[in-house]
């Protein structure tokens, strides 16, 4: 249930940004969550709905951009299919994850009269 601690970090971060920009109310958060990030989207949403109350995120929407995992050879860049052996067919090197482990706060939409 690390989703709760992730949401706690998320709201802290939003509060910092709000302080910097003179934000008064947050309307929407855009986050990017990779398929292999270890974050369960339903749990993340539930945790956010629980923790946003009485914070600057109260009533804010959590918009989640889910990123599928993909792998490729680090030298010849050939894609390695997920579910396959994670090694390049051609040169034999171990594949590297191209994307899919993101846990990123992309953007905050907030009321900030001074910006």
């Amino acid at each position: 249930m690390h989703e709760y601690s992730i949401v706690a970090s998320l709201i802290d971060r939003v509060q910092q940004e709000a302080a910097v920009h003179g934000g008064t109310r947050v309307h929407r958060l855009h986050v990017k969550i990779g398929e292999l990030s270890g974050v369960e989207l339903d749990l993340l949403k539930t945790a956010f709905e629980t923790f946003r109350e009485r914070t600057i995120c109260d009533g804010a929407e959590l918009a989640i951009d889910r990123v599928a995992a993909s792998w490729a050879c680090p030298s010849c860049k050939r894609p390695v299919l997920r579910g396959a052996i994670l090694r390049c067919d051609t040169c034999g090197r171990p594949a590297r994850m191209v994307e899919g482990d993101e846990i990123i706060l992309e953007r905050i939409e907030m009321e900030a009269p001074d910006v």
Partner: peptide
């Protein structure tokens, strides 16, 4: 003007962060 969702609310601004949520832990 909110350009992200087009809601037209003049006071909503998008703040770009693009940072790992666990950056404090990192």
């Amino acid at each position: 003007m909110c350009e992200t969702c087009g809601c037209g609310d003049p006071e909503i601004v998008p703040i770009e962060v693009q940072e790992r949520i666990l950056s404090d832990n990192d």
